[in-house]
Design a protein around this nucleic acid. Structure first.
Length: 192
DNA sequence: CTACTAGGCTACGTTACCTCA
DNA sequence: AATGAGGTAACGTAGCCTAGT
């Protein structure tokens, strides 16, 4: 985050706004961090830049974790997962509308706790968490997707608020400088 | 070495269900 | 009891990456 504001009358008025995500600019790196252990700088701090935002899709991670685990236990769990998904398919076919799951407080708390340590999960972590929560891995995956989206939305909103405030300050500063300029001009004409 | 493909992951946008005022 | 708004679980899609061929 970078901001520079020069307020000296003799100097040029300068302002710099920068939006740099403190955490998670490079998802691949982020993923690596998460696979290696808890990340200390996981919190996203609102920060600013002006200008086109980088397309998040262009810097996203992919495929790293999917090759990190091929144990038979994971395979077995995936098979079980597959069967559960088949049940769901059957329900759909039978016209049973899918009831929307409400997570219990304990489930939400554990998910939140995991999210603090890892904003993305590798397959092993996902399976383990799903087992703990008595949910399907797909549900854990979806929860994390939505949680990341909520985080990003809140961050965007926060950044928007900061930008608004800065905009307001600049407006005020501009007004003040215009007044001052006007004053100096009138002084100059009076001295003639 | 290069090109292509399959499989897996994520972000993003959307839908649909649920809760609550 | 009805209803509209907000929250969120779940889904569909596009883009990217890696491993295998």
């Amino acid at each position: 985050m970078m901001m520079a504001f020069s307020n000296n009358n003799d100097q040029e008025l300068g302002l710099g706004l920068g939006l740099s995500l403190v955490h998670g600019e490079n998802c691949r790196q982020k993923k690596k961090e998460e696979e290696e252990g808890p990340c200390s700088n996981i919190k996203a701090y609102p920060s600013l830049t002006l200008g086109p935002e980088q397309d998040s899709r262009s810097s996203q991670s992919a495929g790293v974790s999917s090759f990190s685990n091929s144990s038979s236990s994971i395979k077995r769990e995936r098979d079980e997962e597959f069967l559960l998904d088949l049940d769901e398919e059957e329900n759909k076919k039978n016209g049973n509308p899918r009831k929307k799951l409400r997570l219990t407080k304990q489930q939400s708390a554990l998910l939140e706790d995991s999210f603090i340590h890892h904003s993305t999960l590798n397959p092993k972590q996902k399976q383990e968490l799903a087992k703990k929560l008595n949910l399907r891995a797909r549900q854990v995956e979806v929860w994390f997707q939505n949680r990341r989206a909520r985080t990003k939305l809140k961050q965007t909103e926060a950044e928007c608020e900061i930008l608004k405030k800065w905009c307001e300050r600049l407006r005020e500063e501009n007004k003040r400088l215009q007044k001052e300029l006007q004053h100096l001009k009138s002084m100059k004409t009076n001295n003639k």
